[in-house]
């Protein structure tokens, strides 16, 4: 049982590290700041989530579990905030002046009612 849990930890943490690597590769390869922010926020979210998931069997329930999950949630919140702040800082300024541009969404505004089921 403990061997299986250790194996689970190794697999999950390795997978998480791979996603961190993917985020870094995206940071280096993607063409501009906004696409790089995509790479960092998404890949790091999943990477940290997998590392936390992998570490869960190694800590004592319930304090250790809640603590690890709290770390993940706080990192998510700050990552999402900082990502948006950076995006707002580098966005093209013409968005502030124009009204909704022609590239309107392909669903009507009342779509939330239409597609409310998961």
């Amino acid at each position: 049982m403990s061997l299986a849990l250790d194996l689970f930890t190794i697999v999950a943490v390795t997978l998480g590290a791979i996603f961190f690597l993917a985020g870094t590769v995206g940071l280096l390869r993607f063409p501009d700041t906004l696409t790089r922010l995509h790479a960092l926020t998404k890949a790091d979210n999943l990477g940290l989530g997998l590392v936390v998931l992998g570490l869960l069997p190694q800590t004592t329930a319930p304090f250790g579990w809640i603590g690890l999950i709290a770390v993940w949630l706080l990192a998510l919140l700050s990552g999402a905030t900082v990502g948006q702040l950076l995006a707002e800082a580098v966005r093209p300024p013409e968005w502030d002046q124009t009204r909704t541009p022609a590239a309107s969404p392909d669903v009507p505004p009342n779509a939330p009612e239409a597609s409310s089921h998961d």
């Binding site: 906004l34 696409t35 990552g79 999402a80 905030t81 990502g83 968005w95 502030d96 909704t100």
Partner: peptide, 24 residues
């Protein structure tokens, strides 16, 4: 905005003059 910045392929970059959220 925070949730959708972690969703696949979307990143909010600001608010347009008419209140719509602009996504990259």
């Amino acid at each position: 905005g925070a949730v959708t910045s972690l969703m696949p392929g979307t990143l909010p970059v600001g608010t347009a003059a008419d209140g719509a959220l602009i996504y990259h």
